[in-house]
């Protein structure tokens, strides 16, 4: 009997750990970001999220995901616990053109992917901080074409970045306006 109860408790705990948590529309704080959302998202459990970083999704992580990367310091990789010998590292003097390479190379090496198309790189403001955004398309081992939208800024010599990835077919176009609303309303805490 005790064994059965223990089994049930274990299953409940494991299931609870693996559940996505609803992120209601409205104001949200994620590490260094304070953002407004126009629709409901779901927080992916860290063990399944992009590099263990805070990541939201609407339809499931493999279809669309929105990752918040905060407070990357000089000499650190974009994703935590990655090999500094292999992965590019952030430098506080990097220009947006170089930060694009940092993001792209991190994704390409992480997913064994190739960039198949590049979009616009533009200056933008994120909560009063000078930043930039850009888009690109990439194909990984599953041979599905995905699009990424990245908005980032350097504040207090640290990189803060929002990374949206979704399948090129359907999901990118469906959610990009919601993502840009989040970026436009975002502020970076000091």
């Amino acid at each position: 009997m005790i064994r059965k109860i223990a089994t049930v408790i274990t299953i409940v705990l494991i299931t609870a750990c693996n559940q996505h948590t609803v992120v209601e529309s409205g104001q949200q704080t994620i590490d260094s970001f304070l953002v407004q959302t126009s629709n409901q998202w779901n927080l992916i459990p860290r063990q399944f999220s992009t590099a263990g970083l805070p990541t939201w999704t609407v339809d499931g992580g493999s279809l669309n995901s929105l990752t918040f990367i905060s407070e990357i310091k000089d000499g650190e990789t974009l994703f935590p616990n990655t090999d500094k010998k292999k992965f590019d590292t952030f430098n506080k003097d990097m220009l947006p053109t170089e930060l694009v390479e940092l993001v792209e190379s991190t994704l390409l090496l992480s997913y064994n992917a190739k960039v198949t198309n590049k979009g616009q790189l533009k200056p933008i403001k994120i909560g009063g901080s000078q930043g930039f955004d850009f888009e690109f398309e990439f194909v990984g081992d599953d041979e599905i074409t995905r699009k990424a939208y990245v908005a980032a800024a350097i504040k207090n010599e640290q990189l803060h970045l929002i990374l949206f990835q979704a399948t090129k077919i359907h999901y990118y176009d469906e959610l990009i306006d919601s993502v840009k609303y989040i970026v436009n309303t975002a502020t970076i805490k000091s």
Binding site: L95, P96, T97, K118, G119, Q120, L121, K122, P123, F132, F134
Partner: peptide, 10 residues
């Protein structure tokens, strides 16, 4: 160039 706006910003 797809980074024209950024270059003009520089």
């Amino acid at each position: 160039a797809n980074d024209k706006e950024m270059i003009e910003f520089y």
